[in-house]
Each structure stands twice: as C-alpha cells, then as structure tokens.
Simulated scan of single mutants.
Amino acid sequence: MGNPWDRGPRPPRKGPPRREGDARPAPAGRPERGAVPAAAGWPQAREPDAAAAPAPRPARREEVRLYGLNAVQAVFERRPQAIRKLYLLQSRVHALRPLLAWCVQNRVGYRVVEAEDLDRLAASSHHEGVVADVLRTAPLALDDWLAALAPGAPALALWLDGVGNPHNFGAILRSAAHFGAAVLLPERSTLALSGAAARVAEGGAEAVPLVRLPDNDAALARLHAAGFASAATVVRDGEDLFALQPPARLVYVMGAEGEGMDPGLAGACMHRVSIPGTGAVESLNVAAATAVFLAHWAATRC
C-alpha cells in the first residue's frame, strides 16, 4: 500500500470565514507615579531645549511586558539590546547581577521594587520577582523563513489556526523550542507573544521562529513546493499517528479547542491525523496534543 504520507496534496477547498485568535498584545503600562524611588542605574531624562526646534521622532517599535525569571533571562542571553526597562525584587539582585551590570553599562533603567509593585506591573502574581519591558520581535515572512532553511534539511512547523489562549500558546512555544519547530501564524491571526505566554514558555519563546503566513491557499502551496507535507490534526476519524512514518519536512495544523480548525484548511491538507487513546476523554488539550505530535516526529529522526 505504500506510506500514506507520500500522497500528493489535495486540491484546495474554500471554507467558511476565517477566525481570528483571541489573544491581545500585553499592555505596555507603567508603574504608578511615586510608588518606588529609582535605584542606581536609572537614566535621568534630559530636559528639552526650549529654544531648539523639535526633532522628528523615529518610529517606535512595539514593546511587550514580559515576566518570569527564565523568560527575562532568555531575552538577555539572545537579544539584550531589546530590553528597555527592568523591575525586580531585592531577592533577585544576586541572580540577575550580570543583567543589572549590562543595564548600567548601557544606560537601561532598572528599579528594585516591592512584590505588590510587580503584581501591578505584570497584572499577575506569577512574575517570579522580575518584570521587563522589551521590544517585540516581528514575525518572519513565510518566504524568508523557507529561504533560510538548509536545502533538503528536515524541518518541522506548527500552523496555529484559531489558537488564542496565552497559556496554551506559551506551552506550545515551550514544546516547539524543545523539539526545534517553528510556529506559523495565519494571515489574520491576532495571536502574539504576551507576558503570560512567555512565562509559561520558560524561555522557549526566544528560541522559536514565528512566521507570518499569507492566505491559506498561497501558504499551503509554498509549503508544499518547499517539500513540506501538511497534516490537519483532528480529534477523530484521522489516520493513526503512531502507525505513520512522518516525512522529514512536515507542518502540523493545530486547531483551537472547541471550535477546531477551519474546515476548508483541514480539507486542503494532505493528511488528517489523530492521536489514538482510550476514549475516556474526548481529546487532549491542544498544548498537550502538540507535544505528542512533535515528539512522534522527533522520534522518527533518531
């Protein structure tokens, strides 16, 4: 019968209107005025020269407020120049000493604050003693990501169709970082990295390429032309994942819990794949299912 993964792509079929994810970028808020005095290393703002004509401001890149020790440390290790402000508890000074020294050398402001200040800054009590405002990384274009792949090299990607919960997104990023997968974001998806997602990802968000897709048909065509098989992950009536030998280049399409994925997109994929189970529960959480799919692909590369 041959390997079912070797079947060619199905002709694209139009589906119902596309859904957008429900995640929103984290607010860029600021600490309450007068709450905490500035610590050493906080650059003082210069008063403008009233006689000078105002200079045009450069375009400001969007910032995101991240929290969690591993999330902030990962930004420092990979792109320290993105850090704009830092807030931390006194108890974290020793662990973050290299980062604080870098802040002083590069005139990046930091403040030692109380736990309740971090609770307000992060809008969460799960900040682990540190909050940072950092520049957001723009997603790659699909063509740029494909061009950067080594010719013929194995590659794995996750297409997130409708996934919007930031904690699920963070758990998916953590698994993607562990198994070396990229994350593909649909054209109209509002899904973006937030403080909650970065904390759950435990530093993995900095290691995962985020790729912005064109419309569904164009994206699938380019992925197929680059040697990727496409597999819609479905709760039931799909091919048994563990009976398949996945190809070296594969993109799994993951749908939102409850709503599932766009039927037109699922129908245009080469395969429909399910994780077999006991039936005691209807399905796995999307983040847990993602880890299973990624682990199965990685096991076949050993």
Rank of each mutant, 00 (worst) to 15 (best):
V183K: 04
D237Y: 00
V93F: 08
R212M: 09
L223M: 08
R111S: 07
Y252T: 03
A298L: 13
R249M: 04
V200R: 07
C103W: 00
P9F: 03
G204F: 03
R61V: 01
A192I: 14
V130F: 10
L220P: 05
A197V: 05
L66G: 00
M270F: 07
D6V: 09
P139W: 02
A155N: 08
A243V: 00
L223K: 03
S194Y: 01
A28K: 12
R136K: 12
D117F: 06
E202F: 11
V211W: 03
A225W: 08
D215N: 10
D143T: 09
V163F: 06
V234Q: 02
G170F: 13
D217F: 09
H127I: 01
L99Q: 13
R174A: 07
L210C: 00
P186A: 00
W102I: 04
G152T: 06
A147D: 01
A53I: 12
L89E: 09
R92T: 09
A182D: 04
P276R: 00
R97D: 14
D119H: 14
E259D: 13
A295N: 07
E239T: 04
F242M: 08
I83Y: 02
T233Q: 02
Y252Q: 15
A266K: 00
W297M: 08
G180L: 01
P4T: 06
S175G: 10
G129L: 07
D215Y: 11
V235R: 12
H224W: 11
D6I: 05
E257K: 02
A218W: 03
A51D: 10
H178P: 04
W5D: 02
R199F: 04
W145H: 15
R120N: 05
A231R: 02
E259V: 13
L191P: 01
R18D: 15
G129Y: 07
A55H: 12
G170E: 08
P186R: 00
L88T: 01
K14G: 14
V93Q: 13
D22K: 10
R97Q: 15
V286H: 05
P43I: 07
R61M: 02
H127W: 03
Q245V: 09
A221D: 05
A243P: 01
V72Q: 02
H224R: 11
V134A: 07
R174Q: 10
L223V: 03
N216D: 15
E282M: 14
N165Q: 11
R111Q: 05
R79H: 15
A123Q: 12
R60M: 07
G21M: 04
R222H: 14
P263L: 10
S175R: 03
N106K: 04
Y252L: 09
V113I: 14
S124P: 15
P54K: 06
L146A: 06
I83T: 03
G34D: 06
V211H: 07
V64L: 11
A52D: 11
P139G: 03
A268D: 02
E32C: 11
G267K: 14
A40H: 10
G15M: 10
A122W: 01
G267Y: 05
D215M: 09
N106P: 10
R236M: 12
L244K: 09
A153Y: 06
G267C: 12
A50H: 04
A248N: 13
D117Y: 15
A101C: 08
R111H: 11
Y67A: 04
G258F: 11
G109I: 04
